[in-house]
């Protein structure tokens, strides 16, 4: 279980202080899929970095499976918002995806299997020997997703992972995330600024206020577990939920002005 308790983060650089997160409290059950939405600049990336143990918070605690996070927890994978910069340009796509597995000492054969499967799942079979910079932005983003998936994490953090892909690919990747989540029993925390995407994907949606950031609202998405792009999005309940999320976000923006 992931527990975020009173999390606060103040950046101070060059005498300027920015309070990115004021007071965040929420929990994510093991095996849950939670989407986080919030206006741009509200501290979503900051939050994810604190959970991943990449950033020291100013106050509050992050606990993962009973352990306080102070460094990167094992079994946690992250898809960075800056997907282009998070791939290593001196490595082929295959090496990029298999590096974390090597580090985990997964045997060679199993490693190749996992890499092939992950690349195939994101529709990138056949690009193994290419360098990341030979691929389009959307393809690079999918390599980053494949890397996280091949790692077989128990917790998966995704920071706006579909920002650079076209609508059709995006729909495919959304379904991929849901099917992986169902199959691998992984806990997913998914950041997006797309309200429809949050409602379609998530079992819960957490809405953040704009800076200084607190949890604005939280809903459980009571749509059937089997979702598909056509029917789920046409479901009246889906429309209700997305309207609710939309209103909350608007309210958050108004309050901050």
């Amino acid at each position: 279980m992931l527990e975020v308790q009173g999390l606060r983060k103040v950046y101070s650089s060059g005498g300027r202080e920015v309070e990115a997160l004021r007071d965040l409290t929420f929990t994510v059950e093991n095996g849950d899929l939670v989407c986080l939405v919030g206006p741009s600049g509200c501290g979503k990336t900051t939050l994810l970095r604190c959970i991943a143990g990449l950033l020291q918070q100013t106050g509050g605690t992050v606990t993962l499976d009973g352990h306080q996070v102070s460094g990167p927890p094992p079994g946690l994978a992250m898809v960075f918002q800056e997907y282009g910069r998070s791939l290593f340009p001196w490595m082929s796509v295959r090496d990029n995806v298999s590096l974390p597995l090597k580090q985990k000492r997964v045997p060679r054969q199993r490693r190749d299997e996992l890499v092939d499967k992950a690349l195939a799942a994101v529709g990138l079979a056949g690009t193994e020997s290419a360098y990341p910079w030979q691929l389009s932005g959307g393809m690079q983003q999918r390599v980053a997703i494949a890397r996280a998936v091949a790692y077989e994490p128990s917790t998966l953090l995704m920071d706006e992972p579909f920002a650079a892909v076209d609508a059709q690919t995006r729909a495919d990747l959304e379904d991929l995330v849901r099917s992986l989540w169902q199959r691998l029993n992984v806990t997913v925390l998914f950041i997006t600024h797309d309200i429809d995407e949050a409602v379609y994907l998530g079992r819960r949606v957490i809405m953040l206020s704009s800076s200084p950031t607190v949890v604005q609202d939280e809903i459980t998405v009571d749509l059937p577990a089997e979702r598909d792009q056509l029917h789920t999005r046409a479901d009246p309940r889906f429309t209700e939920l997305r309207t609710h999320v939309y209103e909350q976000i608007q309210k958050a923006k108004r309050l901050s002005r």
Binding site: R49, A52, G53, L54, G71, P72, P74, L76, A77, M78, F80, E82, R85, S86, F88, L99, P100, Q103, K104, R147, Y151
Partner: peptide, 14 residues
């Protein structure tokens, strides 16, 4: 060295 690359390495235990 790019900070995101370093963070990536760190997050994946490299």
């Amino acid at each position: 060295v790019d900070g995101v690359q370093l963070d990536t390495a760190k997050a994946y235990g490299v």
